[in-house]
């Protein structure tokens, strides 16, 4: 689900200096942060809290105005709370909660939502600059954040229900899909994040 090697691989391909860190001091001092996700919402959040990384991320993003990109579970962790593995508070940088795709909302579709799917981006989005307003990205997830009423919605995807595919507001960026697994579409998006 969260393959850190792939993210690092993509960032290096784009010519970035990448350092994988679980050290709150290093995270608080970084120019830009990238938050992938491994495991369940609850386990990931607990591990951030135990290591003090939650505070380090908030300090970097809110205190110092550093930019952050959350990917997949990393995006979900930015939300207010998540119900995977028991209700858990999130980092609260994005105003909506994260819940499992409900049977009623996805119709005949299967969970997890897995594969390349069409993402509809908003005109003027930073992340999608240079990409067409509908572009294909790779998803693997069973939980989603709804986009309804969310300021900062940069793109949506529809899987029975319309959900948040990408978010951008100030220095906070996030994607539910995996840009590092989405060919040149994803590389463009990562480059746009890095260049911002």
């Amino acid at each position: 689900m969260g393959n850190i090697w792939s993210v690092v691989n993509a960032l290096r391909y784009l010519g970035s200096l990448v350092h994988v860190s679980g050290d709150p001091k290093e995270v608080a001092a970084a120019d830009a942060l990238l938050l992938p996700g491994v495991g369940s919402f609850r386990k990931a959040m607990l591990s951030l809290e135990m290591s003090g990384l939650d505070q380090a991320i908030l300090e970097a993003v809110q205190g110092k105005g550093r930019k952050i990109l959350g990917i997949c579970l990393g995006m979900q962790l930015l939300g207010t709370r998540g119900s995977e593995d028991g209700d858990t508070r999130g980092l609260g940088l994005v105003a909506n909660p994260v819940d499992r795709f409900a049977i009623g909302e996805i119709g005949a579709n299967k969970i997890p939502h897995i594969g390349f799917d069409v993402v509809h981006s908003k005109p003027g989005s930073v992340l999608f600059s240079g990409l067409s307003e509908t572009a294909d990205f790779y998803f693997v997830h069973s939980y989603r954040m709804l986009s309804r009423g969310l300021i900062g919605t940069a793109a949506t995807c529809t899987y029975g229900v319309e959900f948040l595919a990408a978010y951008e507001q100030g220095n906070i960026f996030a994607t539910q899909f995996h840009p590092e697994k989405s060919q040149t579409n994803g590389l463009m998006l990562l480059r746009n994040f890095l260049a911002e």
């Binding site: 850190i4 993210v7 690092v8 960032l11 391909y13 784009l14 010519g15 970035s16 200096l17 990448v18 350092h19 994988v20 860190s21 290093e26 995270v27 970084a30 120019d31 830009a32 942060l33 990238l34 992938p36 240079g130 040149t184 590389l187 463009m188 480059r191 890095l194 260049a195």
Partner: peptide, 15 residues
């Protein structure tokens, strides 16, 4: 788009 993507210089990033 690949040439365009690889053409730009990037800053450091921590993942």
């Amino acid at each position: 788009q690949l040439d365009d993507i690889l053409g730009k210089q990037q800053a450091g990033v921590t993942a």
